[in-house]
Write a protein that binds this DNA or RNA. Structure first.
Lengths: 205, 205
DNA sequence: GTCTATACCCAGATAGAC
DNA sequence: GTCTATCTGGGTATAGAC
């Protein structure tokens, strides 16, 4: 690993622990094992390091799209199968240690970084909600749920629960038991999905 | 308003906008109209100002308890009445402008202030969840909901939705339309409550 | 209680030798 | 590409006159 990569890696480590403002360039240089002036041969400023980290994160995450056709097929195999497939796709990316750390950073830095906040709002919140809206509409068409229910409310009711678990973990409990969190996350969101689904489902009751 | 009160008020204003680290003692002094050295006649350090703000907030908030007996009576008058009464109690304190600002501060500072984080976890999250657990147990006893449902999961499924709305507003959208947010918060959480309730209720269907 | 003046520290960043 | 040395500016906080 060359020094540029080391700087990148160490910065993820430190920023996710102490926040951007809580880490100095000297500290990063110290961990890497070079002098702080040498940092500037690789990145033009401290801010540039942060930008590079989030660019990396966004690149990794957006490659992780939800194909609606596939979801529709999964849905035909039953709710359990459908839900498991969907959450596995999302969690596979997240569970890499590096991605966990940047996710923490995303949460704690979003309030004073406009770009980061926009990414969080659009790609992590709005886009998935829209995806769920499509799916609930699909479920209406397949006569799996009641025709009269509000799909947007349903999507939010469903999705925001998991989002709060993420916030709670990354912001309030981090880094206690990342592994355990991911396991519990899966169990809890599945139970929650069932609760929501039960309130609108048609058929056997 | 004397200068100590001015310092207190101005600090709430600035900290909630820019975060604790984003505000200097010079800036506070400038807004108050005194020199920074004069601050130290009233507060021994910048940190002390923050502590005073959160002490004030906690005092105001804990006076706002949920009496289970009253909730039980409200429940007998129907779910709508019951829910409205409960959410009104919570929102009445929150909707004061000053409390809104400190709530924002609570959210953004909780990740690097142990005391604040503990308060958020215990008083804002855990205590209400326990309260809802008691209530759902009560609803079981009154035969309003199914005996076999998991009350903790139900409480979290119910409560975390609202918590995420709060996070979203205070952390990501603040301070856009505080008034509008509170209105929408009421509507959305009520619809959500109905969704959750529908999944477990007994009786007319 | 507020002021001027200043101490002291640490931050991000740059210049130029090697 | 890394170093030493240094600049510049901002931060919190204190001493002591008024």
């Amino acid at each position: 690993m060359n020094n540029k990569e080391k700087i990148f890696q160490v910065s993820i480590e430190l920023f996710s622990k102490y926040g951007f403002d809580g880490v100095s360039v000297r500290q990063i240089a110290g961990e890497v094992g070079i002098k702080e002036s040498s940092i500037y041969n690789h990145y033009s400023s401290k801010q540039e390091i942060l930008n590079a980290i989030f660019e990396y994160y966004i690149d990794e995450m957006v490659s992780d799209e939800i194909p609606l056709e596939q979801a529709s097929l999964n849905l035909d195999k039953g709710f359990d199968f459908f839900y498991k497939a969907g959450s596995d796709a999302f969690l596979s990316k997240l569970k890499e240690e590096r991605m966990m750390k940047i996710t923490r950073l995303l949460f704690i830095e979003s309030y004073h970084n406009d770009e980061v906040r926009d990414f969080l709002k659009k790609s992590i919140i709005e886009a998935p909600v829209e995806g769920w809206i499509s799916l609930f509409n699909l479920m209406k068409a397949k006569n799996l749920i009641r025709k009269d229910c509000d799909v947007r409310q349903l999507s939010e009711s469903f999705f925001y629960y998991g989002m709060f678990l993420l916030y709670e973990h990354f912001f309030l409990n981090y880094p206690e038991d990342d592994e355990k969190f991911l396991e519990e996350f899966l169990v809890k969101t599945e139970r929650h999905a069932r609760t929501i689904f039960d309130s609108v489902k048609l058929g056997d009751d």
